[in-house]
C-alpha cells in the first residue's frame, strides 16, 4: 500500500512538472498553429543554464530561473519576428513549422554538444532546498515538492495572463481566429511574439527544474523531452493549455505506476497513451472538436 501511495503522490508531483514542460509547446501551437519541435531543446538549454550558473558561479537555481525568464522572453520574441511571420504567410505553415523547428532543434543540439560536451551532468538535489516533505507516512524529495509548487505557480500565472489581462484576452482571440482578431484591431504580431516568448519562458522554467526531476542532462536529451511534451499535449488536447495539465497528470501517474509495478515497460507509456488517445479520442481528453483558449 505504501508503495502504491508513494507512486501516486510521486505521479502527481511529476505530472504537474510534465504539464509545465509541455504547456509552452501547446501554447505556441494554440496561438500560432505551429509545432515547435525544438521545444525540448529549449528545456535542455534552460537545464544547462541552471547547471553552469550553480556549478561555475554558485548561483541559486531560483536566481537563474529569473535570469532565464528575461533571456528566453527576449530570445522568443526575437525568434518570432525573425521567422514566424514568414512561416505564417506560407501555404501550409503547420507543416513547414515542423521542418523548420526540426532544423533549429538539430542546430541547438549540435551547438550544445560543442559547448557542453557529451557527458551527462547533474545538480545536487538539495540545491533547491533541504526541507523534508512527509505525506501518508512517506518522505518525498524536497526538490520534487518545490518543482511541483513552481510548476503550479507558473501554470497559474499563465492562466491569469490568459483570462485576466487584456493581452491574454487578445491572445485568446488570436487562438480562436487569427484573421478575425487582426480585423478587430488586435496587433496580432505583437501579441503572438509575446506568446512565443512566454512559451520559451515556460520551457526555461521547466528546464531549470529538469535536473532535479529527470536526473542527468545532456545535449541530446531535448529530442526525448519534445516527444514527451508532444505526447502530453496530444493526450490532453492539442491547442488547449488546460488540457495539457490533464495530459501531464495522466502521463505522470501512468509512468510512475508503471515504474512501480511493471518497470521494464515504463518508457512505453507515452507512446501507448498517444496511440490509445489517437484511436479513441483523437481530439484529446479535453478536446471538443475545436481548439479552446
Amino acid at each position: 500500500m505504501s508503495t502504491f501511495l508513494f507512486a501516486v503522490v510521486s505521479g502527481i508531483l511529476f505530472g504537474v512538472f510534465f504539464s509545465l514542460m509541455a504547456i509552452g509547446l501547446n501554447f505556441a501551437f494554440g496561438v500560432m498553429k505551429i509545432v515547435n519541435l525544438a521545444h525540448g531543446d529549449f528545456v535542455m538549454l534552460g537545464a544547462f543554464g541552471a547547471y553552469y550558473a550553480l556549478s561555475t558561479f554558485g548561483i541559486n537555481p531560483f536566481a537563474t530561473m529569473i535570469m532565464e525568464i528575461v533571456v528566453f522572453l527576449v530570445v522568443g520574441v526575437g525568434l518570432y519576428y525573425g521567422i514566424i511571420p514568414r512561416l505564417l504567410r506560407s501555404d501550409d505553415p503547420e507543416m513547414l513549422s515542423l521542418i523548420l523547428f526540426f532544423g533549429i532543434s538539430q542546430v541547438i543540439e549540435a551547438l550544445a554538444t560543442l559547448a557542453f560536451g557529451t557527458n551527462p551532468v547533474t545538480l545536487p538535489t538539495n540545491a533547491l532546498g533541504q526541507l523534508s516533505f512527509q505525506l501518508f507516512g512517506q518522505a518525498f524529495e524536497s526538490s520534487w515538492v518545490i518543482s511541483f509548487l513552481v510548476s503550479v505557480v507558473a501554470i497559474g500565472l499563465l492562466y491569469v495572463y490568459l483570462y485576466k489581462t487584456k493581452m491574454g484576452i487578445a491572445t485568446r482571440a488570436i487562438m480562436a481566429n487569427r484573421d478575425e482578431a487582426a480585423a478587430s484591431g488586435i496587433d496580432v504580431n505583437r501579441i503572438s511574439a509575446i506568446a512565443f516568448g512566454i512559451a520559451l519562458v515556460l520551457a526555461a522554467i521547466a528546464g531549470t527544474l529538469t535536473p532535479f526531476m529527470l536526473g542527468g542532462i545532456y545535449p541530446s536529451v531535448g529530442v526525448n523531452l519534445t516527444i514527451t511534451s508532444f505526447s502530453i499535449i496530444v493526450i490532453g488536447s492539442l491547442g488547449n493549455p488546460i488540457g495539457t495539465v490533464v495530459g501531464g497528470l495522466v502521463y505522470g501517474l501512468s509512468l510512475l505506476l508503471m515504474q512501480t509495478y511493471l518497470s521494464s515497460w515504463a518508457n512505453m507509456v507515452p507512446y501507448v497513451l498517444l496511440i490509445l488517445i489517437l484511436l479513441i479520442k483523437p481530439s484529446g481528453l479535453l478536446g471538443k472538436g475545436a481548439r479552446n483558449a
Binding site: W144, L214, G215, V221, N224, L256, S263, S264
Partner: peptide, 11 residues
C-alpha cells in the same frame, strides 16, 4: 528490469 533510457530512479 528498467528501460535503458530510464533517467529517474527515485521511485
Amino acid at each position: 528490469a528498467v528501460p535503458t533510457s530510464t533517467s529517474s530512479y527515485t521511485v
